[in-house]
């Protein structure tokens, strides 16, 4: 658990008073991970589940993930659906318009590998991997909205290991020392 996750407890009774020491990486990763605005790149059937995930029954907003249709304001592109050779340049251009740091979730079998449209078809790109770097793959035809939410939580775990130093990956999220973490509650 990152230090920042227990910010409230630390501020209330910690030895440092209202001062807390952490690293820039941990703070940035915390903020990025908990407010992922999603660019819903829904092309086919999976887009329906993407919409369903944002609505009342599944309520995507509680994870801080809000679908927003402007690539320049979004952090993660959720590619939901089949990508054809006609659509691929559009997706690539929209991805290029997104500001760094940016991530891609491939939702559904079509975006993962072409899925049911792998064989015998002349117009389908076999997976969004062929045009974009994908961080999380979600299988299913289409995946349930819960799977999508799980995928976003997985992406958050990936984001927690990122560093602002180029080319550097952290082993995992910074954690409190074990005794300190457990001692706080007593």
């Amino acid at each position: 658990m990152a230090i920042v996750d227990r910010l409230g407890e630390k501020l209330d009774g910690g030895r440092g008073g209202s001062v807390i020491l952490t690293s820039v990486d941990a703070l940035l990763d915390y903020c990025r991970g908990k407010s992922l605005w999603a660019m819903p790149m829904g092309t086919a059937c999976c887009a329906m589940e993407l919409i369903a995930a944002s609505f009342s029954k599944f309520d995507f907003d509680r994870h801080g993930t809000i679908p927003f249709f402007d690539p320049r304001h979004t952090d993660v592109m959720i590619v939901a659906g089949t990508i054809t050779h006609k659509m691929a340049p559009v997706i690539k251009r929209l991805y290029e318009q997104m500001a760094d740091p940016k991530w891609v979730i491939a939702m559904g079998n079509c975006a993962v590998s072409g899925g049911i449209f792998y064989y015998d078809t002349y117009s389908v790109v076999r997976g969004v991997d062929e045009i974009l770097p994908v961080d999380v793959h979600i299988a299913g035809c289409p995946p349930r909205p819960e799977s999508l939410q799980d995928g976003v939580l997985r992406l958050r775990e990936i984001i927690a290991t990122e560093s602002i130093a180029p080319g550097h990956k952290r082993k995992g999220a910074f954690t409190l020392p074990r005794d300190a973490a457990e001692g706080d509650g007593e």
């Binding site: 050779h85 792998y118 064989y119 015998d120 078809t121 002349y122």
Partner: peptide
């Protein structure tokens, strides 16, 4: 008789 190298025959 359409042939396309990108098309994979099942």
């Amino acid at each position: 008789d359409y042939r396309d190298e990108r098309m994979i025959r099942r």
